[in-house]
């Protein structure tokens, strides 16, 4: 039987598969190849899933707000400047200087996650590839698979 390529599946199917993943696997999927990256970056539902985890929150009860509205609120929450964050949350503030829109959202999500989970401050300013390695190392160090 000839080889069948995963990324040749229809977008609807790839999205369904990605939606079955938890946020950290969604993030890893986003940097496997361009096709998955584009699908993830363009999916409000997947962005919401990752942003929710990055903010250390869970989806609440039914809301009148649409998914894009909820995502926007989450983004506003995570971008609050120092001094305006909720009690108990990190007050570090990041700006993303990437000129690569493909990876920008993934980077933001990684940074956001690290900030929420108190990733060491002195290692937050680093290249993306180093950051990914650090992220994996840091995750296994504190027992997150």
């Amino acid at each position: 039987m000839p080889h069948f390529s995963f990324v040749s599946l229809p977008e609807e199917l790839l999205l369904k598969i990605l939606k079955s993943l938890e946020y950290s696997s969604v993030l890893n999927s986003a940097v496997t190849c361009r096709r998955l990256n584009t699908i993830i970056v363009n999916s409000i539902a997947l962005q919401y899933k990752v942003q929710l985890a990055a903010c250390g929150m869970r989806d609440g009860a039914d809301s009148d707000l649409s998914l894009p509205e909820r995502l926007e609120r989450l983004k506003q929450l995570s971008m609050k400047p120092p001094g305006e964050s909720s009690p108990g949350r990190s007050t570090a503030h990041f700006s993303i200087l990437s000129d690569n829109p493909l990876l920008c959202w993934c980077q933001e999500a990684f940074l956001s996650f690290a900030r929420t989970a108190n990733y060491p401050q002195n290692r937050q300013d680093t290249s993306y590839s180093d950051y990914r390695l650090d992220y994996e190392e840091w995750k296994s160090g504190i027992g997150i698979s």
Binding site: I96, S127, S129
Partner: peptide, 12 residues
């Protein structure tokens, strides 16, 4: 370049 470009910075 996409994989390895320094691209994020902590500003605060």
């Amino acid at each position: 370049e996409e994989e390895h470009s320094p691209s994020s910075k902590c500003t605060g």
